[in-house]
Design a protein around this nucleic acid. Structure first.
Lengths: 342, 342
DNA sequence: TTGTAGGCGTTATCAC
DNA sequence: GTGATAACGCCTACAA
């Protein structure tokens, strides 16, 4: 009743363990009648294979590790779905870990996952652990970067066109007549943050608007930091007339700050956010957002990981495109219109 | 460079594998100088333990399985955080699976997890697989129910006071003068759904309001189903003046339906939702919600799972309390007030 | 204090 | 078509 093994099944069926294995895995021809006997023993004893033993023998765990910054962030959970859908079909399982943007936690999880002999890792790198990541690669562990990448680490990466998307969002605000545009970004040593900042700065420059460092606020990507950043912007001697929240959680915090201080959006301040929410069209103001193809991001990364286990992969960066969802929060009067970024 | 094992380390350090094991696990006294030698060999060779082999030997994987209905639902991700925080500290890892409320998927994951020899499972049951779950229990696999439970399966469960919370929310709407109150619920064979429905019905009854089956809409817990349900309610000959969305995703869908049809909330229809959102205070109308202690739910379940591995657990149900967050969407004029459910 | 050796439950390579 | 049996990498009596 406790734990029945192949040995027990073999005894019951009057065959050898090898034969049991053959039947279970369909790995060799077995006489129909012996197979019959084995199957009966299997069900009678309620045999359940031990995949740990199997993994040890085959050096394959059918497990994929995923390290992202915050497993409870809707942005990542959608990505997670994309990854999961690909791997579940193939009988793989996912171990998801949150690094919280902390290199030490990331390091710990990388160690744990490699010890657990995962067959591959999908990683949104914090920016640290370059050497260790290279070590793991050399030891033959396949990895894919997602959402961001490390300049000097040669792993395929699946990301979005952050610079262009950010440029377009900023340009749109400029088109609406804004010249003092605040921006709230995540940690600055993350590639996606840098790119979003670049797009913002490029748009300003292209329009002859001087860059004001006071309008740039950075912090961990959570609501509280977004809230505080917005407060600082509101307290500026010359308050911005528009804000660009470059990730979902900070944008929520930003909006909370506006509500708490009774600053009307978009009348008093225009807002554009990153990451589209399902509830962006359920509550007011409808939020104008840069919608990332989060599900596809995950799906693509998963597929690349699979491919990279077969052939050496040549392409090192896949760039997916964002969609600019223009709604009322940016002061535009065309609700629900949308344009595809070129 | 590929994979160095204890054997290699032993050879390099001029000791036996046993000694290497002793050093690594601090499991026996070793002469300082031999320990020194071993440690040097360990680092020089960049040894990384194979936890699959370890697991096979020790019959412990340091892995916990979590099966919930939708890993991308914010409600569950917060719960997940609570679970993760408990187990991460102890060096455990989590495998999270989405059953999507489908018994077949749930079954598949239960099989997979038990084969992977997880040390325990936290499960939000779909309602099916009673026999199989009992089998697993008998085989000695510790399990805890979370969010819901199965009447006839004797496992500890961590849930919230659904009936009371639902009663209170409904009573509040009645107090505001509503008598035609719609309710949108999830799948009806889930214990939490039943309880929420019970609370609603009890409140109506207590106030002498007849139950109108047309006002009850049920479906999968996602935005689309919530949207459709609300549409049906709006198209009723005699439209309700208030709606109770009994889970987060359906409530979002419900709100989208109101927005799309230009039905003003709370002026034309009052709304109360289940599950508090961070953005409930960032966008209008501020949503009145029944806030579940999601993080604590996860944390408690995790702690109970740990405990259940030591002692036979007596208590079979832990009930956590919800908080009623009264905001403007229910037509109340006291934004941000809140009361603790008794 | 250290080493030897058996075993964890499979799979895979040989023989037969 | 089937059956012994040696791995897989580690832990742990037990012996030395």
């Amino acid at each position: 009743m406790g734990n029945v093994k192949m040995k027990d099944v073999a005894k019951r069926a009057g065959v050898s363990v090898a034969t049991v294995s053959y039947v279970i895995n369909n790995t060799k021809n077995v006489l129909p009648e012996t197979r019959e006997r084995v199957i009966r023993a299997l069900t009678e004893l309620d045999y359940r294979p031990n995949s740990i033993a199997k993994s040890l023998r085959q050096k394959m765990t059918n497990t994929i590790g995923v390290i992202i910054s915050d497993a409870s962030n809707p942005y990542f959970t959608s990505m997670f779905r994309g990854i999961d859908d690909v791997f579940t079909k193939l009988g793989y399982q996912l171990i998801v870990c949150s690094s919280d943007e902390k290199p030490e936690k990331e390091r710990k999880y990388l160690e744990l996952l490699s010890q657990k002999q995962v067959d591959g890792i999908i990683l949104a790198p914090t920016g640290g652990n370059r050497n260790y990541i290279n070590d793991l690669l050399r030891s033959g562990l396949p990895m894919i970067f997602i959402d961001r990448y490390l300049e000097d680490v040669k792993i395929p990466a699946v990301v979005v066109d952050n610079t262009e998307a950010s440029y377009q969002a900023t340009q749109h605000l400029i088109n609406m007549g804004h010249r003092r545009i605040g921006i709230i970004v995540g940690l600055k040593d993350i590639s996606s943050t840098k790119e979003r900042l670049n797009g913002y700065e490029a748009a300003l420059k292209a329009n002859g608007i001087p860059l004001d460092p006071e309008l740039i606020k950075s912090g961990y990507s959570n609501t509280l930091e977004g809230y505080k950043a917005m407060l600082e912007l509101l307290n500026l001697p010359s308050r911005p007339t528009a804000v660009f929240g470059t990730n979902n959680l900070m944008t929520i915090g930003l909006m909370q700050a506006l509500q708490n201080n009774h600053v009307k959006c978009p009348e008093e301040i225009a807002v554009v956010g990153f990451d589209d929410f399902e509830w962006a069209t359920a509550f007011r103001p409808f939020l104008t957002t840069v919608a990332q193809p989060t599900y596809e991001l995950g799906k693509t990364a998963a597929e690349m990981l699979l491919k990279s286990r077969e052939e050496e992969i040549k392409v090192t960066r896949v760039i997916l495109h964002c969609q600019f969802m223009i709604r009322e929060s940016c002061g535009c009067l065309l609700p629900h219109s949308q344009t595809q970024l070129s």
